[in-house]
Design a protein around this nucleic acid. Structure first.
Lengths: 335, 335
DNA sequence: CTGAAAGCGCTTACAG
DNA sequence: CTGAAAGCGCTTACAG
């Protein structure tokens, strides 16, 4: 069943069918239009996206690159992106950024080969500027999710990581904590860097000097968080009563480490996370953390991208900033 | 950069370029081939998948339908499917089956409209036979993952849920448990039904009559597991020392319920899950469960599907059965 | 071994 | 308002 069949059935030319299909060019007689519509309905005809895309010289496929499919944080984001995309008739190709440049290059090859019409990039990692360059060179519209603040040339959704972390630490200080550790992700991960910056700002604001021994760099993984906490503990810092973690996975690892050592949370040490993944509600003590509207972030980013793709006004730079909010549960004392 | 440009640059016809691109029809002079290859290399030319698919009348897009994107169980599965697909140059369109028929129909519309070359279906739900019918009618090759045993006409990967659950319950009985509850998922979910069957078989095998009050139907969700456990407890069944759950989410809910009521796990009641999601290792006590090779399941299913798609021998029915294995952790006494 | 030509299913100026 | 025709970038008989 092709457009030709419909044309034949309706006794018109394919051009006319195409016109009603595209609903533009109002110039189609009401009678003709109705007849064609009825036939399309009856036959269940669906135009071939391949042919259409070929002539339009663009696909309706969006590339979505995330740092780690396994990170539960991405569930909602993906769902938001998908729902938004589907509503407008777009598809998603999902890519795992992983940690290697090779994989990253492979992803980009794949995406351009598939002729994606745009890319949503959520793996911002300062070491990966070559990615940015490649995409920009290819002139593929893109939106960065949670990239760094000054993504010149790219539109973006940002989460004000620094401010949220600052608020969290501020509240900790209000609650009487003075010696607060910080377990970060890898240095090249933007979100981690920003959260660390927020931590530093809060201390400064409260006139507490930042002791570098308080911060230890780990990775966004439970096992790494565990190790990080161990290392922090080994430093034997006097008066340590709280540690903020740059994501939930790290915090959960920290929790486990503390528990293994018989250190009470939050009585002896308070622990906080960031992201509010599902697990936060199910570990004990329940994790106090910072939540971001991930579903919305996903949705807004596709919408932004589609607007970009369809309007072709690629010059404009949009920016939407979300402010995450602190979710108080049980793992931090005094909040 | 199109095939025409390459042809011009190489001083040959597009037909020849196409031949070397497709690497078939050995009939291309060695010199010519080398020259063309070099030019392709130099220019970084990539053939348009749209054009190619149009003439070949098939896409290289695979539809992957899963029951619930949010269920952490799917992470690895998806990864396996993706890796397998990408290796062969296929794309994935991911769909959430959700619970409504409407959504399901919408998914199918979307997938056929996108002209997927095949479907991997992992949402088997007996109430959804209409889905099966639609797909079969459209003659789209598909493989069922963990569907029911007798998926006539469809190839499939099966997990021997019944046998694994039987083994688990068997071991529980060996360990001295005689009164074992069972928290199932919804009745129309195949995996749940099969796991329940395994439970029943183990009891029978051990000569323990099945008390229907011991089984309560819940859903594959933490909150539902909690409620289910509550209901089971309300029945005040004497001598209840263990409860097996048809998935990990339910088990985690059960754990929480028990904990709320101050009932010790596993000292007073043993609890087991199924699936071995990440969280199992991070709840306390760590959850004893049954693990499936999800990554492999994903990989094998794409490979199966691609073979099906490419060989066009759609008559043949393949079947691969995986046997999940029990993972002993802390939540069950005596294993 | 290689090329000219038709065709995949659509869209869109260009005429009328 | 409607149609004939060219063209999107490829593949594949059919000739030679």
């Amino acid at each position: 069943m092709t457009i030709k069949d419909i044309a034949r059935l309706a006794g018109v030319s394919v051009a006319t069918v195409s016109r009603v299909l595209n609903n533009k060019d109002k110039g189609v007689g009401d009678g003709t239009r109705a007849r064609i519509l009825r036939i399309i309905e009856e036959t269940g005809y669906q135009p071939s996206p391949m042919a259409r895309n070929l002539v339009l010289r663009k696909s309706r496929i969006i590339g979505l690159v995330v740092e780690d499919l396994q990170n539960p944080y991405y569930g909602m984001l993906m769902k938001g992106v998908q729902d938004g995309a589907r509503e407008k008739g777009y598809n998603i190709i999902l890519c795992n950024a992983g940690n290697s440049d090779e994989r990253e290059n492979h992803n980009l090859d794949f995406l351009t080969e598939q002729n994606v019409c745009g890319i949503i990039y959520n793996s911002f990692n300062k070491e990966k500027d070559f990615v940015l360059e490649r995409i920009v060179k290819n002139k593929i519209p893109m939106v960065f999710v949670d990239g760094r603040g000054n993504m010149k040339g790219g539109n973006g959704i940002h989460v004000d990581n620094a401010r949220a972390m600052e608020e969290l630490v501020d509240r900790l200080v209000m609650a009487g904590h003075r010696t607060i550790g910080c377990l970060t992700g890898e240095r090249h991960i933007n979100s981690s860097e920003q959260r660390l910056a927020g931590y530093a700002q809060a201390l400064e604001k409260n006139g507490i000097p930042l002791d570098p021994r308080l911060v230890v760099e780990t990775k966004y993984l439970i096992a790494a968080g565990r190790l990080g906490m161990e290392r922090l503990l080994e430093r034997n810092i006097r008066g340590l009563t709280a540690v903020v973690c740059c994501n939930d996975l790290i915090a959960i690892g920290a929790l486990e480490c503390l528990q293994d050592k018989g250190i009470q949370v939050p009585e002896e040490i308070s622990v906080t996370g960031f992201d509010d993944i599902d697990m936060c509600r199910h570990v004990r003590p329940r994790l106090t953390t910072v939540s971001q509207p991930n579903y919305d972030i996903g949705r807004v980013s596709v919408e932004m991208l589609i607007r970009l793709v369809e309007q072709e006004d690629r010059g404009r730079v949009d920016e939407v900033v979300f402010l995450p909010k602190v979710v108080v549960r049980e793992s931090a004392r005094g909040l």
